[in-house]
Amino acid sequence: MLEPLFPWREMRRMEREMDRMQREMERMFDTFFPRRRRWMEVEFPPLNIWTNNDQAVVTAELPGIKPEELELSVNNDTLILRGKRVANDLPEGARYQRRERFQGEFARSLQLPFAIDADKVEAHYENGVLTITLPRAEADKPKRIAVHAAESNGKEG
């Protein structure tokens, strides 16, 4: 077997290979155990969407918000959530030692798998978690279509 001409190249190649394997492992790990993005998350607030045939439930982690400062709107199958999280008033002479919490305006737009009955949407805020229940529009629900059997002799009617 040939010795590699440039051992460091070989080492770099191995390092790259290790990196690739590590990324692959992380990717697999993340697939099974999605890593919760914390304060580094690009989008605030983080959302979860739950659905069944009749409605969708959207939950958002929105700690420290005044519910009256939230603006929710629904258009067909799209939910828009807007709001602002302002910094707490600080006492005189206070200084930040650490500042990780999201601050400022946010807007999120979500497309749901079906059209929403906007009149029946309900939102509820508790312990910093917003839960929005979005019933599916009647017109959007699948209709059951009766299948009529052909004549017993099998001939086309």
């Binding site: 993005r37 979860n48 969407i49 739950w50």
Partner: peptide, 14 residues
């Protein structure tokens, strides 16, 4: 929350 009657369609937090 208990969401037995639902499927988790999309998740950004756990």
């Amino acid at each position: 929350p208990h969401m037995q009657e639902y499927d988790l369609e999309y998740a950004e937090y756990e």
